[in-house]
């Protein structure tokens, strides 16, 4: 996974709360393989009208926000389903950080597993960032070492789970880490058999004819 330390990029304001994963990637696009890329479907039904034309009033379509790598949204971003495809859509589009006052838990953990930073700010700071981006498009800085977001003179703190921060800073992948605990896993399984004999599914259940 690509490490995340500092980012200087165009920020795009998305002044909506509860942007759920059904908005981020509508279900009908989820049959595709990741190799085909999900970026074109990001926020599809908000970005495009029923005929497929780009909606001029949607921020991501505005010329000023082209090339955005940071999204600033209102509370409860990524609520809803566990579909990691929502994160694929953001990442494949080029987004590396979403700033919001709160996130869906599963979305946030999926984001971190794909190198996308979910940066939690206070509601007033979030409103200030939105206002700044709406007033004037321009670059913003995200500093994961210092946990700060800056737009010009506006400089606010964000929170991120410390474990996630370490993972993002280093670009770590869990599997390698888990493999190093193989002995502990084997010991757990052996002890668990005695502690919770009822935890295994009854195996006398045959397959149906």
């Amino acid at each position: 996974m690509r490490p995340f330390t500092q980012l200087q990029a165009v920020g795009c304001p998305l002044s909506l709360s509860g942007v759920d994963t059904d908005q981020i990637i509508p279900a009908r696009f989820m049959k595709r393989s990741r190799a085909e890329g999900y970026g074109g479907y990001l926020l599809h039904d908000l970005r495009f009208d029923a005929g497929g034309a780009a909606r001029a009033d949607f921020p991501l379509n505005a010329p000023t926000y082209q090339g955005a790598q940071v999204l600033v949204a209102r509370r409860n971003f990524g609520s809803g389903s566990s579909r990691e495809a929502a994160v694929y859509a953001l990442v494949d589009y080029g987004i590396r950080c979403v700033v919001a006052p709160s996130f869906g838990d599963i979305f946030a953990s999926n984001a971190v597993n794909n190198g996308l930073l979910p940066a939690t700010v206070s509601e007033p700071d979030g409103e200030a960032l939105l206002a700044a981006l709406e007033a004037q498009a321009g670059p913003m800085q995200v500093d994961l070492e210092a946990c700060r977001v800056r737009i010009g003179a506006l400089d606010v703190a964000f929170a991120v789970d410390p474990v996630w921060r370490t993972k993002l800073l280093n670009g770590w992948d869990d599997i390698d880490l888990t493999t190093s605990h193989a002995a502990a896993i084997a010991a757990f399984v052996a002890g668990d058999r005695a502690r919770r004999p009822w935890a295994l599914p009854r195996t006398t259940v045959g397959k149906p004819d």
């Binding site: 566990s82 579909r83 789970d161 869990d174 493999t179």
Partner: peptide, 23 residues
């Protein structure tokens, strides 16, 4: 019982374990 994303599903498939922080 809780929902997980595809990266975590892959992790469980391969290890039958999952890293979580206590809510």
């Amino acid at each position: 019982a809780f929902g997980i994303g595809a990266s975590e599903v892959a992790h469980v498939l391969m290890t039958q374990t999952l890293w979580q922080s206590r809510p």
